[in-house]
Simulated scan of single mutants.
Amino acid sequence: MPHDDSIRDEAAAWAVRTGDPAFEDWDGFTAWLERDAAHAEAYDRASLAVAEAAEALASAPANDAAIAAPRGNRRWFGAALAACLAGLAAVGVWQMGGDGRVYETAPGETRSIALGDGSTIELAGGSRITVDEDDPRFARLESGQALFDIRHDDAHPFRLEAGDDTLVDVGTVFDVRLDAENLAVAVSEGVVLFNPAQQNVRLEPGDRLTSARDSADYVLSEVPLAQVGEWREGRLTFADADLADVVADLARATGVPYRVAPGSAVQPVSGSVVVAPLRGNPAALGPLLGVSVRKAGEDWMVEAP
């Protein structure tokens, strides 16, 4: 059965992840298998390639400049070998570094992370976060989106670095989205301080702060509490959001390669979208948000009317 590139990549990532003794996301893996009949076959082939790649790496002389691909499709071997050489740093796989433990998710995937103090982090699709294992009251969001449910501790407030910004709280629930241009923070419980040493903005339940990453300026607005972290329930709601941000959020949540068409990036869009149906029918986004959606190669281009 033929498989497109996205299924190949996802299968290779799952093959490496499930081979990790610390792997725990069996519910996520099962859901991925059940989403498409092609996933099981792709996973079997990727698992074989990963196993053979690891065997080849283990048996090769240390000074070998190259390792011959084992039997089977070299394209599959290449993907699996790249994942192995990355030290299990492929999408969704944790790795240990000098700065802590790194977690990543593929677009369309979510992951729950339990911290040592009883707090939890829900990582959205297409996201990356570093957690300090020695200090569960510190983390660094590298990119993407996450919902934080932090245990109350006045003596040791939780600190999150997101780009060049710092968020501090003493026990709350808040959502953070970080992309190349903007940081967005929304609070549903407790209090969060935005950059206490600089702007020192106090965010309470129902507050949303948006800040450009290249500026000290920020904008405060209101957000319904039910919409904070609603992506965990498979829904995204937008209110006069730039189409570029909407498309990026949808691509991260669905795993569909949505792209904003040139000239449409700042078009304001409003609406509420259930994510799951879009995975099987990406074009269904059009009538939901009043936009044009068309296939362009491997991508789905989204354009303002």
Rank of each mutant, 00 (worst) to 15 (best):
A155D: 15
D207S: 09
D149Y: 02
D25R: 12
V131Y: 10
V102D: 07
W26Q: 07
Q227C: 00
G263H: 05
R111C: 12
G116F: 00
D299L: 01
P224G: 00
P257Q: 12
G286Q: 05
E104P: 04
P257T: 12
A51N: 03
S264E: 01
D4C: 13
E41N: 07
R235V: 15
P205V: 03
F23D: 11
E122C: 10
F138V: 00
T18A: 02
A83L: 12
R17A: 13
P2Y: 03
V247G: 11
A46R: 05
D249Y: 01
A124G: 13
P282V: 11
T30I: 11
R252L: 03
V293P: 05
G280C: 07
D217A: 12
A139M: 09
S292M: 12
D179H: 11
E230H: 04
V246C: 12
P107C: 06
A146W: 09
G28P: 01
D153Q: 10
N195D: 14
A89T: 14
A68Y: 08
G144N: 03
S211H: 10
A296P: 00
A239E: 08
A106C: 09
G98D: 11
V191E: 15
T172F: 03
L33D: 01
G144M: 06
A276R: 10
G87Q: 14
D135Y: 05
R294L: 06
Q199V: 12
F148N: 08
Q95K: 11
A253K: 02
P287I: 10
A11F: 09
S112A: 09
D242R: 12
A66S: 15
E181S: 14
A248V: 07
F77Q: 11
A304P: 04
H3S: 11
M1C: 09
G116H: 05
H39G: 09
R294P: 04
E133L: 11
R252C: 00
A139F: 07
G171S: 08
A216K: 08
Q95Y: 13
E41A: 13
G108S: 00
D27K: 00
D240M: 03
G286C: 03
P224M: 02
D245S: 06
G97M: 01
S272K: 02
D64L: 15
A244M: 12
G255E: 14
M301Y: 03
R232W: 10
G290V: 09
W32Q: 06
D179F: 07
A58H: 07
A90S: 08
R259Y: 08
